[in-house]
Design a protein around this nucleic acid. Sequence first.
DNA 1: CGATAATTTGACCGCTTGGTAAAAGCTTAC
DNA 2: GTAAGCTTTTACCAAGCGGTCAAATTATCG
Lengths: 212, 212
Amino acid sequence: MAIPRAAKTQRRTRIQEEKEELILEAALDIFSQNGFRGATIDQIADAAGMSKPNLLYYFRTKEAVHRQLIDRVLSTWLEPLRAFDATGDPESEIRSYIRRKLEMARDFPRESRLFANEILQGAPRIEDELKGPLKELVDEKAEVIRVWARAGKIARCDPYHLIFSIWSTTQHYADFDVQVRAVLGQAHSGDGRFEDAARFLEKLFMDGLRVR
Amino acid sequence: MAIPRAAKTQRRTRIQEEKEELILEAALDIFSQNGFRGATIDQIADAAGMSKPNLLYYFRTKEAVHRQLIDRVLSTWLEPLRAFDATGDPESEIRSYIRRKLEMARDFPRESRLFANEILQGAPRIEDELKGPLKELVDEKAEVIRVWARAGKIARCDPYHLIFSIWSTTQHYADFDVQVRAVLGQAHSGDGRFEDAARFLEKLFMDGLRVR
DNA sequence: CGATAATTTGACCGCTTGGTAAAAGCTTAC
DNA sequence: GTAAGCTTTTACCAAGCGGTCAAATTATCG
């Protein structure tokens, strides 16, 4: 008699881990393409190769799936910013931050779109994460940038808007991929566009931040 | 006996114009907040102060509302790019393009989010516009930028990625408004953030594009 | 006014949706 | 093996959805 949803026992089964992984992977596909409201449990269950009630055996609600997905993805998503090193060389730290963010846009576009969808629609489910952990991390790194600017190592600029502009330019290649490809046309829609973008962005930010 | 949906007569009524306007205005609110699938006809009808069947008297389907909204907004949205003048001074043309795009993000955030939602979800309903009119316009302006670069008036750079970066940095303040506000905190969430952003972006692009 | 067309509404339909119940099938440990 | 718990499925429900219909109401114009 399976009274409880998987997890009455403290210990998680092998099957539980496998299936939850499968569900989250499928949910990432569906949520990132359709947003929370636009995605259906049936779609996700289908993509995960199981029935709807079976999925609901592992996650109580659609929101629970989404919740766990967001939590998991958020931490990996902020990794590049966390790696921003106050003791490193300013120019190369910023350069490598741009490069890493762009690589993430290329390699994990679904994760990027998941967040974009969420924030675009008012972030009803992750407001706390934005105002808490995210803000704190950005505050910390903004201070680093400000110190660099004061020390004359990079041009004086608003560190928050610098971070926003790096986020937006890099994530653009994941979130607005369809538009980018449509505009570039077939000729430049290969993976080369990421290298072109990297070259352009590095030059833009390096020249824009150089002390003059 | 009202056999046809409004428009059997060639001439549109005063009421027709008013109500259609009202519906599109309400639909902009709802669609931009929830995306196409996430929005319901009931929500839009409510926001427009009428019943669902009444809304469907003016627009045959939900998609028809969305369609007309997109068509209308697209042309105004591209206005700043169209205004890009090949005969003008490169630096001031680019500077004023950035400023105008940022003003649009501030003054018409719903329009920006409507597109962002659409493109994020694969642009199923506007693919043709992207590959047709949009691409042609961008191609034309990219050529202008390339000529400027060849003439040594601005730094050599990939014109397409330059345009993408202007789009993304400016629209970020509309599309990711919630995140921007969460990170900046209450202190900087006033309208001042647009002036700060303008200052930052103008410096970034001007220094990044200056011939050196 | 009165007739005709334009507008609005309430009731309704078929389908999809998130979620439940209960029983059947499967694993695992003894 | 067998009993206990874990997993999966079939059948189902209530609410929400896009959209229709016909009747009621209102505006327009001679």
